[in-house]
Amino acid sequence: MDPLISARGLTKRFGDLVAVDGIDFDVAKGEAFGFLGPNGAGKTSTMRMIGSTSPVTAGTLRVLGLDPAVDGPRIRARVGVVPQLDTLDMELSVRENLVIYGRYFDLTYAEAGRRADELLAFVQLTERARDQVEPLSGGMKRRLTIARALISEPDLLLLDEPTTGLDPQARHLLWDRLYRLKQRGVTLVLTTHYMDEAEQLCDRLVVMDKARIVAQGSPRELIERYSTREVVELRFPPDAAESMDGRLNGLADRVEVLPDRVLLYTANGDAASAALHESGIRPESTLVRRSTLEDVFLRLTGRSLIE
């Protein structure tokens, strides 16, 4: 089957700035696909090109088999967009936001109204239908934005940092709704700089850094390929960590010294921390955990994701 999105050598330049530097990727139908990377890695520029609201500078891009340069309106008719910053219509009520957005997609008022009520229930905003948008909480606004993106029953949903700035409870509610959409067969493409989000939602993802793709695969594959099964996190008193470096080397496959902590990459965390203890090293705290995408990112770029 043809991929829903296909990019080859996709490039975006703003004057001298190269925002996206010749990336290749494919997104299959029904998949949840993620772009993971720090701010400025080129994620949003890529999303906007896919959504046909930003022209491609070079390379080829096909969305739903169509070329955005020629068929922008036809692509946009089948794509739902959740932008990074909410662009809800502050001059309209919650429900009107959905209805008029439906009109932009040529729905009749009756159909737009029917879908608006359904979607308000889906994102748990039915009680707020007649309210103004401004007083809604951040999480509610995000949910309304997602509902708005779904009014056209899109084949593809683009979410640019869907949970940035939300509290944990609001994030979990949002993830739950996105998971349900995925189960209904909606293809999700999202950007995030949250590792847990990528692990929760994405079947497959690409790690972006400095306008390029540095790795791709499923979260599991990436962890297996670029990290160890477990990680021991050590905290030392200020300035003590650097002097530990040499003494820690033999205890793990790889040692990563960060400003606030030291990470030991190892297949067996408990064994490593026992060995640590035996060698007389006494960190302020020791934590054994499973490897995450955060570790993958650190390995690939030498930097933490959120600095």
């Binding site: 609201t53 309106p73 794509v79 932008p83 662009t87 219509d89 001059e91 957005y101 997609f105």
Partner: peptide, 14 residues
């Protein structure tokens, strides 16, 4: 400020 047209241009409208 309201970015009204950013939202509009993500639909088939141009």
């Amino acid at each position: 400020y309201a970015k009204t047209y950013d939202a509009v241009l993500a639909t088939p409208l141009g």
